[in-house]
Amino acid sequence: MSQIFHHSTNLISRLSIYGGVFILGLLGFALYEIELSPWYTDQNVAREQPVPFSHKHHAGELGIDCRYCHTSVEKSSFAGVPPTQICMSCHSQIWTNAAMLEPVRASYRDDKSISWTRVNALPDFVYFDHSIHVSKGVGCTTCHGPIAEMPITWRAGTLYMSWCLECHRQPEKYVRPKSEVFNPNYEPPSNQLELGRKLVKQYKVQSLTNCTVCHR
């Protein structure tokens, strides 16, 4: 009885088994890389805005407190994007003719809101509250990155769940004294872990990792 399969079938089947593992592995790796790439996460991508607002200038060089514009950060889940009125409280006095600020003046004149592009967005199935984080010693720059160095604002983290859990599992690695929460130039000290453990105890920071804390 003659053989059903040709002799070369052995080689082909071997190659396709090894190839399958290799190709599938490569595909998985590519998908993983895409998922972490700035193209997909928007991490480190400066977003175009109707007015090229510079946090570097306002928060870094001028030293305006975060809460001057983000008024509700200590009271509400939402930090608040400043109403035009807040912009105009200064810019009715300085740079009153700057062409760059025309959309702001137009908004104030015509009573039409400026439509900013959202930089840090969480999916709607995630509950997040700014006020509890800032009142427990989580600094602005811990999540929002070196905001005092951003001429145009970008997203500093991936905002993935693993990114959140990194801190939720080990808050002592990130917590800072409450007085430093709104300091955009804060550098963690060399003894961060030691200080962090102390602050976690002092501020009664809980390591909340239950699903329903955020996915309510």
């Binding site: 509700s72 994007v81 109403p83 035009t84 009125q85 900013w116 592009t117 959202r118």
Partner: peptide, 19 residues
């Protein structure tokens, strides 16, 4: 998707966004 944030021009009294 890209989202927009549309703040007030002049905020009404007592409103805290999110509350």
């Amino acid at each position: 998707p890209t989202e927009k944030i549309v703040p007030y021009v002049k905020p009404p009294e007592e409103i805290i966004p999110g509350k």
